[in-house]
């Protein structure tokens, strides 16, 4: 694969865009953790926003790295975080249900 200098540069800039796209997701995850009213809604904010944010950053760094080995490792890390956070999210929600913590409702 002979990538010319221009394509490398375009890939690098696309990567930067992806990273910049990912940052607001992390910030909104934190804001949700602080602002949302109960444990279930906070779990929503934390798992979804952070995983998408990490996905964008992984994607951006992979575009910038220009190497298959680094890309594979980044994807492995993202996959691990995805599996781990969705599993622990379900576990926390299930335990909260078993402890009879009532979900917050409107009004």
């Amino acid at each position: 694969m002979a990538a010319t200098k221009e394509t490398m540069e375009i890939l690098y800039n696309c990567g930067t865009l992806f990273i910049i796209l990912g940052l607001p997701f992390f910030l909104s995850g934190t804001v949700g953790l602080i602002r949302f009213p109960d444990i279930y809604t906070r779990l929503h904010a934390l798992t979804k926003a952070d995983n998408v944010g990490l996905g964008c950053i992984v994607c951006g760094l992979a575009l910038q790295s220009g190497s298959w080995a680094v890309t594979a490792k980044l994807l492995l890390i993202w996959l691990l975080v995805l599996v781990a956070s969705s599993a622990s999210c379900h576990l926390i929600a299930r335990s909260a249900m078993q402890k009879n913590i009532e979900p917050w409702t409107r009004s």
């Binding site: 997701f25 904010a45 926003a49």
Partner: peptide, 8 residues
């Protein structure tokens, strides 16, 4: 992710 961001 977009949905959560909008709500937060």
């Amino acid at each position: 992710g977009i949905d959560v961001m909008r709500r937060t």
